[in-house]
Amino acid sequence: MTSVQLAQPTARPTNVRPPDAQAKAVTFVEAAVPYLADLSIKPVTYNPPIGAGVPRRDGNYRDFKVRIHDARPIAADLSLDRQAFSLVGQQTAVRDFYDKEEIRRTWEPEVEAMIRRETGASKVVVFDHTIRTADRGVERGHRAPVRSVHNDYTERSGPQRVRDLLPPDEAAARLAKRFVEINVWRNIGHHPVEMSPLGFVDAESIAPRDLAVCDLVYADRTGEIYIGVYNADHRWYYFPRLTREEAVLIKCYDSMKDGRARFSLHSAFDDPTSPPNPRPRESIETRTFAFFD
């Protein structure tokens, strides 16, 4: 496993929407997030088919209270190559994110264009979408927000996903050059996120020992993700009241081993500043590969 180290910052766009003027200013909140306390039990997650139930997790998980800082004041300075997450302003023509055809026809080209713009990639492949709802997600055929400190790909599963998606000759050519897996996470509701926001660990504070390989078991295959092992040095951030005009980019894999951030950690959490009866979060996470020549 390769250490996550410092890299030169990349330029950030200036079209990020400012926080809601009516929202209460907050520097940080304290909340509990589920980490692995240690590796005494091998972590394994069993994922049922969408709409069939909730995941079952093996592992010595414990809730740890962390301080999660408001990232909006530093949004323009965040870099995928340093922190492994960033905020971008992103208008969309999508009217209904629950319409799979509209996702294919409108959202996927928007995402491809955005990733090209933000990274300079020569080719972008949009390959997966997950709708998450905090209100009866399973019953409605979706997934619930993930309350586990994790990263979606590992040193092994990142390249394997490329092989799964591309023809063998193209996969071999792409794997010989730099490629990056980036998740696009956004609010699909018409109101700012009030429930179960997503928190992100600054990759500069992640040590190699903090990333534990976890088997991800489905009915037809087994993959791998990283689960975070608790480290008091982790620096947490979030974007309060994320709007429909914003998107968060999360780098979950980078093939380059030159000192830039390669992996990330993130988790949903309960924001203590949420209103007494918060609107249930509705979000989409879209997975992409950015390939470079």
Rank of each mutant, 00 (worst) to 15 (best):
M1H: 10
Q5N: 15
D20N: 08
A21N: 08
K24G: 02
E30K: 07
S40D: 12
I41K: 12
K42Q: 15
N47F: 08
G59E: 01
Y61N: 08
Y61P: 03
D63C: 09
I74H: 11
L80E: 04
D81F: 04
Q90A: 13
K100M: 13
E102I: 14
I103S: 10
R104L: 14
T106V: 15
W107N: 01
P109S: 15
V125H: 00
F127C: 12
D128Q: 13
I131K: 02
A134F: 02
G137F: 00
E139C: 11
H142I: 02
A144Q: 10
V149G: 00
Y153T: 03
L165V: 10
L166H: 08
A173E: 14
R174I: 09
L175A: 05
E181G: 05
V193C: 00
I206H: 00
A207C: 09
A212F: 04
V213K: 07
C214I: 05
D215R: 11
L216M: 14
Y218F: 15
R221H: 10
E224H: 05
A232Y: 15
H234K: 05
T243E: 04
R244I: 00
E245R: 06
L249R: 01
D254W: 07
S255L: 10
R262E: 12
L265S: 03
D270V: 06
P276D: 08
N277R: 06
N277P: 04
R281S: 03
R281H: 05
R281Y: 06
R287L: 13
T288V: 12
F292L: 10
